[in-house]
């Protein structure tokens, strides 16, 4: 390289944050590690997923944990044709808001649908967990949601 040219180099900046999750999100993440999807009952009996410590509408404490899913309905979605390295899947996928069976709110996750013509609002999907030995209590314990009936 000529002396007149500017240098360049690859750098990585990383902060290794570790967050305390609290009793409710902690229960949700523990559920994921166990292969279960948990919501929480809010004011008036609605079920919030992922669970929160307070009902976002009323500010009141939420109540008991309830199991939801494993199926659900796609409420909205966006196709990702060119996944980035930090995306959860290396192949094209959809980000989707999924309302799990038994829940009153939708949760953001991945639909592994093969192509944008194979996902639509209103579609039924079901959860695909990672193998039990790989689950650590994190959102990525859910590998993806897949079209119900298995056409992924």
């Amino acid at each position: 390289m000529p002396e007149s040219e500017a240098l360049h180099a690859s750098h990585v900046l990383e902060y290794p944050y570790s967050r305390s999750v609290g009793p409710v999100i902690g229960a949700f993440l523990t559920g994921l590690r166990d292969g279960k999807l948990l919501g929480v009952r809010g004011t008036g009996g609605s079920v919030i997923v992922p669970p929160t410590e307070y009902d976002p509408a009323t500010g009141e404490d939420t109540g008991e944990l309830v199991e939801v899913g494993p199926g659900g309905v796609v409420e909205s979605w966006a196709w990702v044709p060119n996944p980035l390295p930090k995306h959860p899947l290396a192949r094209p996928f959809a980000w989707a808001l999924i309302r799990l069976d038994g829940a009153d709110t939708a949760m953001l996750h991945v639909v592994d649908a093969g192509g944008p013509d194979q996902v639509a609002t209103g579609d039924r999907v079901t959860v695909r967990f990672r193998p039990a030995g790989e689950r650590i209590g994190a959102m990525a314990d859910i590998e993806a949601f897949v079209p119900e009936g298995g056409a992924s």
Binding site: A6, L7, H8, A9, S10, H11, V12, L13, E14, Y15, P16, Y17, S18, R19, S20, V21, I25, G26, A27, L29, T30, R33, P85, K86, G137, A138
Partner: peptide, 16 residues
């Protein structure tokens, strides 16, 4: 029970 979550924030960049 799960009590903590690792949430690293990472930036890969080309510096000149």
């Amino acid at each position: 029970p799960v009590t903590t979550l690792a949430t690293p924030i990472r930036l890969d960049f080309e510096f000149t």
